[in-house]
């Protein structure tokens, strides 16, 4: 017997990782804007670094999302 409600709660907790990713991405973007304001000529370099950093930060949210999906689609059967 599977309990759909518990799976749903677990999936909800799993996507809670988005909070951390959002905070991190916000801080990183803010810092990047500060850096560009201080040194506009380093714009392209900062941009490349920012995108790389955002991708790494975002992956925590994505892991949570994938975990939630796996829970919903494989545990309910």
């Amino acid at each position: 017997m599977t309990n759909i409600g518990l799976i749903a709660i677990g999936a909800g907790i799993a996507v809670f990782t988005g909070v951390g990713a959002g905070l991190g991405m916000g801080i990183a973007t803010g810092k990047a804007v500060e850096a560009v304001a201080r040194q506009p000529e380093a714009n392209s370099k900062i941009n490349a670094l920012l995108i790389l950093g955002l991708a790494l930060t975002e992956s925590t949210a994505i892991y949570g999302f994938v975990t939630a999906l796996v829970m919903i689609f494989t545990m309910g059967k």
Binding site: A55, E58, S59, I62, Y63, F65, V66, L69
Partner: peptide, 13 residues
């Protein structure tokens, strides 16, 4: 693992 999950999660989302 992290490369695969990142790509997969983004596309599926």
């Amino acid at each position: 693992v992290s490369l695969a999950c990142r790509l997969f999660g983004n596309m599926l989302g």
